[in-house]
Design a protein around this nucleic acid. Structure first.
Lengths: 203, 203
DNA sequence: GACAGCATGTAATGAGTTACATGATTAA
DNA sequence: TTAATCATGTAACTCATTACATGCTGTC
């Protein structure tokens, strides 16, 4: 392990706050990172074990009844690797937006297909807002478990909440446009409205 | 191949417009889908060969000098699979935002680390705008090779251009906040500004 | 005492990437 | 004629996912 991955850094970062079981780590990933660094729970179990083998975390083996239960904690060299990763060049931003892909390809299908995709994007945005609103109020009320990190979390919250609003607004515009289409082909009226949209964007 | 993947659909969608070599397909992916369905060129070469083996595309083998050169075209069952895919339930939206992850984890590092990440996000947004602006003007001038798709492409353009603007604006806000931090720890002033930011978001 | 949901993993698989190799074309 | 870039792939590998198995805990 010459250099750790971003997912490793995410796990070490969580362990830097406190020692945790892989289940807690997976929950934390789901709660906090789901929208900008999503990873399956099973991946967490395997990856944190690798961190331990690499000496970046310790594993304290325990049990619940006959079941294993492992508490992981970050080590000194784990903290060092995390700091090194933070100091290194940032990787990029990758969006995989299947609804948008469906809209882009919709000339091979029906307007109804594009509408379903747009509504899916909107539903996702609404779900994000539904999660974000109470979360934001928790921070405002000072009752969030990581209240001492609010100066940092407000920055990511800002990004994600506005992204959700922005996606919802786009979906509304797109839906009201596609709802007028009898088919997915070109037409003078569609062309005119498209250019108007572009002109508005480009100022 | 019981059901095709979204990447397969993207390739078939391009072939539905016209027959192409894998190189052209890869270029098309890069030009059009890079920002919402990014795939490596080498992947295109292999995947389109699979489409051919599955009978969804035909491969006309030719040559440039001593090099092979294959032109792929969509088949009837390829069009059918594409329509089936378009008619199926849309998949989700996945964002992998490493700069945001770095900000989120920055309590284990220095403010400078977070600043670098924020600037990287901003650079990416500016790059998108720099690509989008001339592209938008091409559509407005009516000179784009896929001008007849402008009623569809205006929708994805709307999403991506505004996303870039939104990311740039977030980066400006975030940078001006973090630039004031002597360290990444909590402080009453940071806390106060964070709550103000959240209050503004939640209305 | 049975069922739902929480918790802890393993196994198999796959989609996609990076790295590499090499031929063709063009511009300096 | 050489270097850069366009074009066409193959090979090896990695990261991550889905599917599965199974134990524990509380509750009806």
């Amino acid at each position: 392990m010459e250099t750790i991955s971003a997912t490793d850094a995410a796990l070490l970062g969580q362990l830097a706050w406190r020692a945790q079981t892989p289940y807690e780590l997976a929950k934390g990933m789901e709660r906090n990172l789901r929208f900008f660094w999503p990873r399956a729970a099973s991946h967490v179990y395997r990856q944190v074990k690798r961190l331990q083998r690499a000496g970046l975390a310790t594993a304290e083996a325990g049990a619940t009844g006959r079941r294993p239960r492992t508490v992981y904690a970050i080590t000194g060299s784990g903290r060092q690797e995390l700091r090194r990763w933070l100091a290194a060049d940032p990787g990029g931003i990758e969006l995989e937006h299947e609804p948008l892909l469906r809209v882009f390809l919709c000339s091979s299908g029906e307007p109804e297909d594009a509408l379903r995709a747009i509504r899916a994007a909107r539903a996702r945005a609404e779900a994000m807002l539904a999660i974000g609103r109470p979360l934001g109020h928790e921070y405002l009320a000072g009752t969030h478990p990581f209240q001492e990190h609010v100066h940092i979390r407000a920055l990511s919250f800002d990004y994600l909440y506005r992204w959700a609003e922005f996606t919802r607004d786009w979906a509304e515009r797109a839906e009201s446009e596609v709802a007028r289409w009898p088919n997915t082909g070109a037409s003078p009226a569609k062309h005119r409205r498209a250019l108007a949209r572009l002109r508005e964007l480009l100022g």
